[in-house]
Nucleic acid binder design. Structure first.
Length: 413
RNA sequence: GGCGGGGUUCCGGAGCGGUCAAACGGGCGCGGCUGUAAACCGCGUGGCUCUGCCUUCGCAGGUUCGAAUCCUGCCCCCGCCA
């Protein structure tokens, strides 16, 4: 048997280093390897946990970094336990934030949870043997006695060690008991589902580690933890997040996804590729974005945009998105397909602010400003300041362009 | 429970009886330049039936010809003391 064991040990070592690639932390040292080894000895898959709070309705590329890593675990034969934090979403995790989150209503949480699960399947393997989806309301809606036991596992001092809590303490900001409770609840999730490994962003490190303490307090084996880098948003500076409006959603349309990617600062390109694409497709395109300025940087970004769309949609749609982009933003031509808007003529005139407001969901005042600033084109010509009402004949059949990317073909109704 | 400080437009943050839809910075939008990158320049950034009107400065009242600015009550946040 020693030989077989050696082989297993070697395989576990190899796999653990492969799985840990791209991670910021994989703790404790050798922990993952141990888990892999015991799993293979016991002939069972590891239970790899990720908790997501359904606070925003859509999954974006930031989530995709961690989900992609989970997929690697699945591909290695392990089982992902995705926890929809429908209960913890009511608490609001302050990790990485300087203020409290607002609480969501149950209806919102439910709706978000449903879309979340659906979208996560774009990246995860949905095979029931490889994926288990749970909601933490299943076990967190507990009797007071159980909560007291949970709370008894940890001290305030332990919790206040967490960086953002410490900062807020120091700067005199409030910290609610609810927020302090959050890491405990998350840790209890690990107990409830017998997590072998838990993943998260680097901002989750504290919570993930605390999960180990809580498991220990409940007499369970402690999970290994792995943290993944936080992806920056399209502004290239801050963490990608819906509330900062710098996100690329994994269900964004191909055109949108391509366009948003092209707007990402050059400096962030390499990171997008490294975190999102390399793990899945290898490092074939590496290195080119460093090549001087200008053309090659642009081409590298085009390739990135194409690859992202190909991954989350399809190669065909990636090609189409690029064609659309070239046509509209490089050649400044009209898109191939333009939605129509019919307008009612009032005494032979069309009131454009009203039309624009209705078509694009902006206020009339904003529409007026756009016109006055030369941001609106009707047919070939940009409208002049104050040109708010135009003759119907001039509008009928023409394309109205608002800003760089909003188009409507007008029809007299 | 006591004393003190504070709640302003997306964010930070001025304003402290009229000239305030509210300085300034950030963000964002539009235009220029361009690679829908960066940097840089200009304009804009509550709403509307738009040379004016309406709503907004924690909430509710009040004083005044007139309040974000003064008064009263309430709610919330922060600090010190207990």
């Amino acid at each position: 048997m020693p030989n077989a064991d050696d082989g297993a040990a070697e395989a576990a070592a190899e796999l653990s280093s492969r799985l840990a690639s791209g991670a910021v932390d994989s703790l404790p040292e050798g922990g993952l390897e141990q888990k892999l080894l015991s799993a293979s000895r016991e002939g069972r898959p590891l239970r790899v946990k990720l908790g997501i709070d359904p606070t925003a309705p859509d999954i974006h590329l930031g989530h995709a970094v961690v989900l992609g890593k989970l997929r690697e675990f699945q591909d290695a034969g392990h089982r992902v336990v995705l926890i929809i934090g429908d209960y913890t979403a009511r608490v609001g995790d302050p990790s990485g934030r300087s203020e409290q989150r607002p609480m969501l209503s149950e209806a919102e949480i439910d709706a978000n949870a449903a879309t979340f699960q659906e979208q996560a399947l774009k990246i995860l393997d949905g095979d029931p043997g490889r994926l288990e989806v749970r909601r933490n309301s299943e076990w967190l809606d507990m009797p007071m006695a159980d909560l007291l036991r949970l709370v008894g596992t940890t001290t305030a001092a332990q919790l206040l060690e967490r960086e953002d809590f410490a900062k807020r303490m120091a700067s005199g900001q409030s910290i609610s008991i609810l927020e302090l409770l959050y890491p405990l609840l998350q840790g209890y999730d690990s107990v409830a589902i017998d997590a072998d490994v838990e993943l998260g962003g680097t901002d989750q490190k504290f919570n993930l580690l605390l999960g180990r303490d809580i498991q220990r307090a409940y007499g369970r084996p402690e999970q290994a933890i792995m943290t993944m880098p936080i992806l920056v948003g399209t502004d290239g500076r801050r963490k990608m997040s819906k509330s900062l409006r710098n996100e690329i959603g994994i269900t964004d349309s191909p055109q949108e996804m391509y366009g948003k990617t092209m707007a990402v600062p050059d400096e962030a390109m390499a990171e997008y590729r490294r975190l999102l694409l390399d793990p899945r497709f290898g490092e074939h395109e590496r290195g080119q974005n460093g090549e001087v300025e200008g053309r090659s940087a642009r081409d590298a970004k085009r390739a990135l945009a194409r690859d992202l769309v190909a991954w989350l949609h399809s190669p065909e749609e990636a090609t189409a998105a690029e064609r659309h982009f070239d046509r509209v933003f490089v050649e400044h031509q009209l898109p191939e397909e333009i939605e129509e808007s019919t307008f009612a003529s009032d005494g032979g005139l069309v009131h454009l602010p009203g039309l624009i407001a209705e078509a694009f969901g902006v206020s009339r005042s904003e529409a007026r400003r756009l016109i006055d600033q030369g941001g609106v084109t009707l047919g070939e010509k940009a409208l002049e300041a104050g040109e708010h009402d135009v003759p119907s004949e001039r509008a009928d059949g023409q394309v109205l362009k608002v800003g760089r990317r909003r188009f409507r073909r007008l029809r007299a109704g």
